[in-house]
């Protein structure tokens, strides 16, 4: 687990080291894109915990979701429709949902692990069939 956390820390560090200025006009869209990215990462984590993780889907989903979230919001603004708000609500719901599932998976896994350890099992986590 140390590698993803290290990656997050490196990203945050890079963000502080390099100040990239986002043009005023697209700040709104990048905000939605970041929400989409967080949602995808949480989704990937959940899939990982639920043993249905697929790397290509995860990676492609990350980029596609961020890109389309920003694009749809921009198109919504062009059309004069607040897709921004829709995307905000949709991603918020998904993020909360994912957080909830991750929490449940983690708690379940923890309890199962405990029971397995009580049973004297060598394996832990959700890799065992």
């Amino acid at each position: 687990m140390w590698l993803p956390i290290a990656g997050l820390l490196v990203g945050i560090l890079l963000g502080f080291l390099f100040s990239v200025e986002i043009p005023l006009g697209i700040v709104k869209y990048t905000a939605i894109a970041i929400l989409a990215a967080i949602d995808t990462i949480l989704g990937g984590l959940r899939a990982r915990l639920e043993d249905r993780f697929d790397l290509p889907i995860f990676v492609s989903g990350f980029f596609a979701n961020t890109f389309f979230a920003a694009l749809l919001t921009a198109i919504g603004d062009l059309l004069g429709v607040d897709i921004y708000l829709g995307a905000l609500i949709a991603f918020s719901i998904r993020i909360f949902g994912n957080v909830g599932f991750i929490r449940r998976d983690l708690v379940e896994g923890y309890w199962r692990g405990l029971t397995r350890q009580e049973r004297g099992s060598v394996f832990s986590g959700r890799q065992s069939p």
């Binding site: 490196v10 990048t30 970041i34 984590l45």
Partner: peptide
């Protein structure tokens, strides 16, 4: 792990920049 690390790095970078 690597994929998560990279994507988290990207997301962290983006979030901090934002």
């Amino acid at each position: 792990h690597v994929a998560f690390a990279l994507l988290l790095a990207t997301a962290g970078f983006l979030a901090v920049t934002q």
